[in-house]
Simulated scan of single mutants.
Amino acid sequence: MVKHTQLFIDSLIHPKKLAGYRMLSIGKVIQYVFILTTLVTIFSFMQFVTVLSNEIVFEIEGLTQYIQDIQWLLYPFAFVVQFLISTTLIFIQISIFALIGVGLLKVMNKRGEYRHMWRSSSLAITWTTLLSILFRFIPVHNLIGTILGIIITLILLLIATTKYPKMPKK
């Protein structure tokens, strides 16, 4: 059984193994995606709390008191909403990359299905996820970070696609 740490390391260092992991159970892959989503959510939530606490200082006294009174409700609600939004966006992103990967399989005359590319895409977005966290701390324009993430993921998918089996000759 492959551990999540091994999936993480291989998705960062060994892009050729992404094709081999296409046969993993979908449950293991979804667990991995939820771990990545939790990482993004935690860093996003920390940024939210930092910004909120910094902005409270400059607001009206009554509003400051009100926010401090409902903090016990605001923070858990904000965390849940951020987790749901992050999960939705990451799953959509994986699905789009898997669709592109199916096109790569057809162009390269390789054998594979959407479900296999979905698994490979789930692991290929690891770099993109880590870079999105890093770019929150480094002043990089969002468009540049997004384009860089897309390029890296597509390159990893292309490398993984080369390791898929060839289509049988007719």
Results as ranks from 00 to 15, higher is better:
Met1Leu: 13
Val2Trp: 10
Gln6Tyr: 04
Leu7Arg: 15
Ile9Ser: 13
Ser11Lys: 06
His14Thr: 05
His14Met: 01
Pro15His: 08
Lys17Asp: 15
Lys17Ile: 04
Lys17His: 13
Leu18Ala: 03
Leu18Lys: 12
Gly20Met: 06
Gly20Glu: 12
Tyr21Asp: 00
Met23Ala: 14
Leu24Arg: 10
Ser25Glu: 14
Ile26Ser: 08
Gly27Ser: 13
Lys28Glu: 14
Lys28Pro: 04
Val29Leu: 07
Ile30Asn: 09
Ile30Gly: 03
Gln31Leu: 03
Gln31Asp: 05
Phe34Pro: 13
Phe34His: 08
Leu39Tyr: 01
Phe43Ser: 05
Ser44Asn: 15
Phe45Lys: 02
Val51Pro: 01
Val51Lys: 14
Leu52Gly: 03
Ser53Cys: 06
Asn54Leu: 15
Ile56Met: 15
Ile56Glu: 14
Ile56Ser: 12
Val57Phe: 11
Val57Leu: 14
Val57Pro: 02
Ile60Glu: 15
Glu61His: 11
Glu61Asn: 12
Leu63Thr: 08
Thr64Phe: 00
Gln65Glu: 01
Ile67Met: 02
Ile67Cys: 00
Ile70Leu: 06
Ile70Gly: 04
Trp72Met: 11
Leu73Ala: 13
Leu73Gln: 13
Leu74Gly: 00
Tyr75Thr: 04
Phe77Ser: 08
Phe77Val: 09
Val80Asp: 05
Phe83Tyr: 12
Phe83Asn: 11
Leu84His: 03
Thr88Lys: 02
Leu89Lys: 02
Ile90Gly: 11
Ile90Thr: 14
Phe91His: 11
Gln93Gly: 15
Ile94Tyr: 00
Ala98Cys: 04
Leu105Gln: 04
Leu105Cys: 09
Lys106Tyr: 11
Val107Arg: 07
Val107Gly: 01
Val107Trp: 13
Val107Asp: 01
Val107Met: 07
Met108Gln: 09
Met108Ile: 08
Gly112Phe: 06
Tyr114Met: 07
Tyr114Asp: 00
Arg115Asn: 01
Arg119Met: 10
Ser120Gly: 04
Ser122Pro: 07
Ser122Thr: 03
Ala124His: 05
Thr129Gln: 06
Ile133Gln: 05
Ile133Arg: 01
Asn142Ile: 05
Asn142Lys: 08
Leu143Lys: 01
Ile144Arg: 00
Thr146Ile: 05
Thr146Pro: 15
Gly149Arg: 00
Ile150Thr: 12
Ile150Ser: 12
Leu154Trp: 10
Ile155Asn: 10
Leu156Thr: 05
Leu157Cys: 08
Leu158Gln: 11
Ile159Gly: 09
Ile159Tyr: 09
Thr161Gly: 06
Thr161Lys: 15
Thr162Asn: 10
Lys166Thr: 08
Lys170Phe: 03
